[in-house]
């Protein structure tokens, strides 16, 4: 069991151990979908929701089914299957019951299955031996942290439309460099919480 208090896990997963800026997870959608603040906010919300639910589900499946049966080996394949099935289910559910929400979030849902942040959070949860409450807090914090990072980046990219970036650096290059500066900024929080 991990002795860290729940509050520290929550805050650390937003700031100091930001899943994107410190663990490099969810970079693909971060690079592609950070062009406008609305898209970033939609994707961030969807990621947070899916993260909380899948860490909870995966925690229960791992500790109630896989561990008693001695099948921890299958964790990877089960986790990804749970994530894919859950995302599919939410997509169908939202489409059926809330079309407006579907148009706001629905387009992002298929993207999320292959977002490494989702699978990464489940794997971290197992590696760091979190208990149930800690896992949920970690999932929620990681989602919020990811959302904060992509929102900042989207804001910066909108501003950057007016600046004269060297031709070869446009696109991914400059986003990488800015992410580096962001990661440095977030490291400034390191003294606040020790994990």
């Amino acid at each position: 069991m991990n002795p860290t208090p729940v509050v520290s896990i929550f805050i650390a997963s937003i700031l100091t151990n930001n899943i994107l800026l410190a663990s490099f997870l969810g970079m693909c959608s971060f690079l592609v979908c950070s062009n406008s603040i609305e898209t970033a906010a939609g994707l961030g919300t969807a990621v947070t929701f899916v993260l909380v639910c899948t860490t909870t589900l995966n925690y229960l499946i791992y500790h109630l089914i896989l561990v008693p049966l001695g099948l921890e080996v299958l964790a990877f394949i089960i986790f990804i299957a749970v994530i894919a099935a859950f995302v599919q289910f939410v997509e169908m559910f939202v489409e059926r019951f809330s079309p407006s929400l579907y148009y706001a979030l629905g387009i992002f849902l298929p993207l999320i299955t292959v977002n490494c942040a989702i699978l990464g959070a489940s794997l971290f949860m197992v590696l760091r031996e979190y208990n149930f409450i800690q896992s949920v807090a970690f999932g929620f914090g990681a989602g919020l942290g990811w959302t904060v990072a992509i929102l900042i980046m989207a804001g910066l990219r909108q501003r950057m439309g007016y600046s004269n970036v060297p031709e070869p650096l446009r696109g991914t290059g400059i986003v990488m460099l800015i992410t580096g500066v962001l990661a440095m900024t977030f490291m400034g929080f390191a003294g606040m919480i020790n994990m």
């Binding site: 990219r157 031709e167 290059g173 460099l177 580096g180 990661a183 440095m184």
Partner: peptide, 29 residues
């Protein structure tokens, strides 16, 4: 630490793009 990775990757992409300019540059700055 993490920022170093972002910087290195950023500069690497910059170098590759400078050597091999892509005909259609990506949208967004």
């Amino acid at each position: 630490l993490a920022p170093g990775a972002f910087f290195t990757a950023g500069f690497l992409i910059w170098a590759f793009n400078a050597i091999h300019p892509r005909p259609q540059s990506e949208t967004g700055a």
